[in-house]
Computed example of a mutant assay.
Amino acid sequence: MSLDKTRLRHWLESGVLPPEHLDTAFGIAGIEPTPAQWRRFLERFLLFNAGALLLASVAFFFAANWDALGRFARFGLIELGLALSLAAAWLRFDRPAGKMALTAAGVLTGVLLAYFGQTYQTGADTWQLFATWAGLILPLALLGRAASLWLLLAVLVNVAVPLYYGSGGVLSGWFARGDEPVWLLFLLNNAGLALWEWKTRQVDWLPGRSGPRLLALAGGAAVSLQTLEKVLNPDMGLLPVLTVYLAWAGAILAVYRYRLHDLFMLAGMVFSVMVVSTSALGKYLFHGDGLFAFLTMSLWMMVCSAAAVRWLKAVFREVPHE
């Protein structure tokens, strides 16, 4: 299919294929989704929405009847929902409905932990709620092999780490300048990205590209923010951070340009480089004429944007697309 799409695109750009015959060519090549593919897409889409609406209805039910319910009634309803979700996941374990039920069980686990802490005032820090929640759903993610659970786990880790360092944890003194949570998130998200990509290529556990793209977005944002901070404050140790940043950008380019062919990843890397380079340019230009600095930065952004669009379009034409 990807070869047919590339060939048709080439014929269309070269004028061999008239634009008015493009739909017919798509149908002959089998590129347009079949009724079975549309049905599978709609089933998954409606299933996801049904699960999300069911969880939202649980939250609204508790909000509307909070005063009317006793302590044990609240615990019982949450645990009943958790038990029903686990039972549904067990009965439909290898089907999308089972994975959705397992995700609901993961969400309700956090609801149960939050209500337990609120009811009995355990005195635990906020980060402990998210860390415990992540630890409890990790076995579900390993057993269920559901992308939604792995994404929930990644979100919990990204929330727990900054909260832990903000609470003055034991590990807070490991670094001198207080930037350890950002670097830890960078390492964790990129390690998760590498593991996700590797497992996807080994077995069909984690289909789709939303998971790795979100992890790459989180990891890239962390290293980009750290680089921006050091660019704007070079006395805080620019060279080590810039080395890590360039290594990250080179790894993204090597992996997603020449191996996995993901245009989203490349576009994110290019955007990060544009922001960092423009910030560095502005840092060293604003010591003089402000108008000249603004004009130079504007010209730089236009040149970078045009070059990036041209390069990304060239990459898009070269690689196969599903």
Score class of each variant (00 low, 15 high):
Trp205Phe: 04
Gly106Asn: 04
Ile252Met: 15
Asp67Tyr: 03
Leu46His: 09
Gly178Tyr: 13
Arg201Ile: 04
Ala36Ser: 03
Gly123Pro: 07
Leu102His: 04
Ala64Lys: 10
Gly178Glu: 11
Ala249Leu: 11
Ala101Trp: 02
Leu312Pro: 01
Ala63Lys: 08
Ala105Asn: 03
Trp150Leu: 09
Asn65Tyr: 06
Ala104Tyr: 08
Gly268Ala: 10
Arg259Trp: 14
Leu242Arg: 04
Leu136Gly: 06
Phe116Val: 04
Leu22Ser: 00
Arg40Met: 11
Gly219Lys: 04
Arg177Leu: 13
Trp150Gly: 08
Ile137Ser: 03
Leu185Gln: 08
Ala73Glu: 15
Ala307Asn: 10
Pro33Gly: 01
Arg257Asp: 13
Gln121Tyr: 01
Pro139Leu: 11
Arg74Ser: 10
Val241Lys: 07
Leu185Gly: 04
Pro320Arg: 02
Leu53Lys: 05
Ala105Lys: 02
Thr34Met: 00
Tyr284Ala: 06
Ala306Val: 10
Arg209Tyr: 00
Leu46Thr: 14
Lys199Asp: 07
Gln226Phe: 02
Leu22Tyr: 03
Phe286Met: 03
Gly30Ile: 02
Arg257Ser: 15
Gly106Lys: 09
Asp179Lys: 06
Asn65Ala: 09
Asp94His: 13
Gln118Met: 05
Tyr164Cys: 05
Trp11His: 00
Thr6His: 08
Gly117Ala: 00
Glu229Leu: 14
Ala83Leu: 15
Leu299Glu: 01
Ala25Val: 01
Tyr258Leu: 09
Trp11Pro: 00
Leu156Glu: 11
Thr6Gln: 13
Pro19Thr: 01
Leu206Val: 01
Ala216Lys: 02
Ala314Lys: 14
Val159Leu: 15
Gly106Cys: 07
Ala254Cys: 10
Ala154Met: 14
Val319Ser: 02
Thr278Asn: 12
Phe60Arg: 06
Val303Lys: 03
Leu312Gln: 01
Ser2Gln: 09
Ile28Val: 04
Leu77Phe: 12
Leu260Asn: 14
Arg201Asp: 04
Arg44Cys: 08
Asp4Arg: 11
His21Tyr: 04
Val203Glu: 05
Met302Ala: 07
Leu152His: 15
Gly117Met: 01
Tyr164Thr: 02
Gly106Leu: 07
Gly30Gln: 00
His321Pro: 00
Leu17Gln: 00
Ala88Tyr: 08
Ala314Cys: 07
Glu180Ile: 13
Leu55His: 12
Leu232Gln: 13
Arg44Glu: 15
Gln121His: 09
Gln37Asn: 04
Tyr164Ser: 07
Pro19Leu: 03
Lys99Trp: 11
Tyr258Ala: 10
Phe292His: 03
Val58Ala: 07
Phe186Asn: 09
Gly250Ile: 05
Val241Gln: 12
